[in-house]
Amino acid sequence: MTFLEKQTDPTAPLHWRGNMQADYLYPNGVAGDKFFKHIMQNDSFLATKCDECGKVLFPPRLYCEDCFIEIPEENWMEVPAEGTVRLFTVAKLNAHGKKLPEPKIMAMIDIDKTDGALLGVIKSNDSERDFTGARVRANLRPKDAREGTLKDIVNWNLI
């Protein structure tokens, strides 16, 4: 099929502009709520251990997605807010393609004593170095400013 008629008027409108505005409130979830409430009070993290596969799940979960069993209450454990950089990249542009004032070092950090990882920003003036394997510690907001979201982790300091 081909269209038989075409719009040939060069002054005719071509586009209609708009957005898809809506705001969101995501409850952090049953496991997430416990995780973030712990961070609000402590300088450490929580993880959950699956009895079936033995994995220490981080961030902590209500269930193990591999074994598909619920994690019992007693399998919640405290782990240090420290880890090792597994992967990293250095961002020089922001999400809108504008140049950032400072390069931003984004890393995936394997959290100590767990089988899980977290994304974070590494605080360093040297954006040229290789961060792979670097030891890092979470730099948390002052306790009275913590609000129970990922933003409570400001960035990660090299140890």
Partner: peptide, 16 residues
């Protein structure tokens, strides 16, 4: 109207 569970957690509870 609103549950505390994430979508994943709700999916798990129903599936289980």
């Amino acid at each position: 109207r609103r549950l505390k569970e994430t979508g994943k957690e709700l999916s798990f509870l129903a599936s289980k």
